[in-house]
Design a protein around this nucleic acid. Structure first.
Lengths: 246, 246
DNA sequence: GGGATCCTTCGGCGCGCGCCGAAGCGTCCC
DNA sequence: GGGACGCTTCGGCGCGCGCCGAAGGATCCC
């Protein structure tokens, strides 16, 4: 059995890879996956409106994505909820998004620029913090000796103690790395992902340090959160970058 | 400038991601990229023969892949050499290949099974060792305290000393992690990638510990290599898995 | 009970893409 | 110098895919 599995698994061919890539080689399906990168479940009609296609188009595309294993779904009454299948799928979408060339022009309208700014400032990247806030938290953890990047990324003993002090636990899932670097493409610097990154983000939501901005991926730091980050990480109020217009 | 860049970069849309994925959403182009995952440069006619398409088809597909930034090329006389553009592209292809469902049936013919076995035993995964040998080397390095996976993957002080002892250097490229875990999909366990993984692999070739098997991705451990790995890592001769038929 | 909403199925339409062979250019070797 | 080889361009062909509206079923709320 093991021998058979190994030999089969070594034999990935062009059409296999093409089938997976093909799932994302469509603007509509890719748009769905990017929207779902916020870590939440969306209904079919929400996704349809988000990318601007008909409900029938949405059903057909979601069927492909579910059959292909990228999305998981559940029904609730007349609603069909879908989400990214697992963290590995989210990582894949993230990675593709981080290297994809930008074909569209930057946003020009005031609402679009403000939305982009909000995303750059603070957002969720599937299950962890991203944007200027995500990078600032990661930098502060590093400065405080909680993370060590010298010879690979490690949670230090101080880091483990810090998490315990705050009551932040994370599953010791051996398949998922406790800490992982995720390239933040708005800041062009890494932020913390992995099981610890996800746990910190969940704690931030549960403790009302951050809150969602509408249905967007963007999050806002609350007063409670500002105080907590100052107390626990020494984060000052100027973590957000200088306004680009100044 | 920074503000402009950040706002633009935050705005990745469905069509952007679809354009990148579209490059790989074709069996022929995907087959080229998988072949190039061996880390070498191939000529256009070699790739054409490898996947079984006409030269004109090959030219058209390579043009797309180069224009899309996945491949880099150079001309030498009448030959057009192409290779994967950079390590980040290789990581992307690796990741896609590791999660792609296998649609094709496992190899049945004796030559195909032997080729698959050779790949499972030892191969290059772009620029680092993979297969049973890659996993065995990684496990031995861990057992000897050269690598630490407890709270993220780190090269330990002993590991740094071990590399110096062997004369293995690696560029301290801050953009590339020194150590990175790469899921070996034949062994279903991780092997060492990153700058250190690449340096160890290069040293193994330079020191004739391993040698290529034909034009394949597979590599063979030489007698020199067997002795060296026993001496420097305590690797016994049974790193290759038990024969599946026994 | 009935209207609104969400979602699905399916036929139709139009477009894009991958394949190839033929012709031709440049390189290389005998 | 000429034949072989590698590669490119381009027109033609066939196929697959994404879009939609219409019709209908299930859910939900007034």
């Amino acid at each position: 059995m093991m021998g058979d599995v190994s030999i089969r698994d070594a034999h990935v061919e062009g059409p296999d890879l093409a089938a997976l890539a093909g799932l994302l080689a469509d603007g509509t399906r890719a748009g769905f996956c990017l929207a779902l990168l916020d870590g939440r479940a969306w209904t079919a009609i929400e996704l349809a409106r988000h990318v601007g296609v008909a409900a029938s188009t949405t059903t057909e595309h979601l069927n492909l994505l579910v059959a292909g294993g990228l999305l998981a779904q559940e029904r609730q009454g007349r609603h069909r909820y879908v989400r990214l299948a697992d963290p590995a799928t989210a990582e894949l979408i993230e990675k593709l998004a981080s290297v994809a060339p930008r074909r569209s022009s930057p946003p020009h309208s005031l609402p679009a620029v403000n939305r982009a700014r909000a995303l750059a400032r603070a957002r969720t990247c599937y299950d962890h913090l991203a944007g200027a806030l995500g990078v600032a938290v990661t930098t502060a953890m590093t400065d405080r000796g909680l993370l060590d990047w010298e010879q690979g990324l490690t949670l230090t003993g101080k880091g483990t103690a810090w998490l315990e002090e705050l009551g932040i636990t994370h599953p010791s899932d051996t398949r998922r790395p406790p800490v992982r670097s995720c390239l933040d493409w708005t800041e062009r610097r890494p932020h913390l992902a992995g099981a610890v990154g996800a746990a910190v983000c969940r704690h931030a939501f549960d403790s009302r340090w951050i809150t969602r901005i509408g249905t967007s991926r963007a999050v806002a730091l609350t007063d409670t959160g500002r105080h907590a980050l100052r107390e626990h990480l020494g984060l000052s109020d100027d973590w957000s970058r200088a306004d680009p217009s100044s």
